[in-house]
Design a protein around this nucleic acid. Structure first.
Lengths: 175, 175
DNA sequence: TATTGTTATACTCTATAACTATA
DNA sequence: TATAGTTATAGAGTATAACAATA
């Protein structure tokens, strides 16, 4: 018994009568029983899809996040961008460099405190953000397809709740 | 505005009326609007918690997964373990080595095909798995706390559905 | 020649910390 | 001395490919 994989024979579009052997169906009970384990797996998969889609624009999630933040809150010192997105200031540098190279953001020194670099979204950046938004929405639509309308609403509400309660643990290892 | 973190003050159990500013509350609308983005973030956070908990046993998720699989399906050739868990055979080696060093699994050559190494769970491994299970359950209970009983059921059902539909995209880059 | 398991290599991502320029 | 930003370095994690033993 070597090949359980129909590989590319997806003839049966059937959902899941009994033991349909889509790869995930083989998860041992202990793993399928843990909501956290499942969430981690599905989350990683979705993140991969998102990354893949954004790569079409030559961007990664961080770029999207920065663009979205800047549109939301206008000009920002780099430090506060990092703080609000819970990511390392050092890691932010290359992201902003990338965006600047594409003309998506502009950077100027803050006259009041010349140590600060204020970052601002340009029109190009706004347009780029719009592209991202569209792309992300289409990715969401794709992987959410197996769910009912109601389930999608439930999931979104649940995730908002969880994100809200989470200290977000950006990178510093926990306890 | 440095501290937006109410940290553990989840006083308002309200769903999402306006702009409650727990760290995640600062997420720009575009990000909070994407279920995928949220799922990725929350998934990463949970994965971190899980990893942190399992590290108390000196294990990682992969170890847990292998133990769970072996209990579920008995002896297995390494290759089929890798296949069923959708992970790289080469990456599996060190995991099984670790488990073997702790006496959690035993490995013998398959007499019928001496290329195969059959892996089997020991009593020690069964006990270790039980510890993992308990640990994982407690982590789940912790981060699921903000949700109602019904929401937890909803989330689990939704994740199972999504995992089922996902080709699981283990590592090979998509498309 | 194909397959199982293993080892070794390279690549990505991220975290730490060292450095500069301002204050 | 402390802070904003930057650069450089090291580490974990993972994927690829080369390898040995067996079929």
């Amino acid at each position: 018994m070597h090949s359980v994989e129909g590989v590319d024979g997806p003839a049966n579009s059937a959902s899941s009568s009994s033991a349909s052997r889509t790869s995930a169906g083989t998860l041992p009970p202990d793993l399928a029983a843990s909501t956290g384990f499942l969430l981690g797996k599905v989350g990683a998969s979705v993140t991969r899809r998102l990354a893949n889609a954004l790569s079409l624009l030559g961007l990664r999630q961080k770029h999207f996040a920065v663009l979205a933040l800047l549109e939301d809150s206008g000009s920002c010192a780099q430090q506060s961008v990092a703080a609000r997105l819970n990511l390392d200031p050092s890691g932010l540098v290359s992201v902003i460099d990338d965006l600047r190279r594409r003309g998506a953001v502009e950077r100027e020194r803050d006259p009041e405190d010349r140590r600060r670099h204020t970052v601002r979204l340009t029109e190009v950046g706004r347009a780029l953000l719009a592209e991202c938004r569209e792309l992300v929405a289409s990715v969401d639509a794709e992987w959410l397809a197996p769910l009912s309308e109601e389930q999608r609403r439930q999931l979104h509400a649940i995730l908002l709740r969880l994100a809200e309660a989470d200290p977000v643990i950006p990178s510093p290892r926990i306890s």
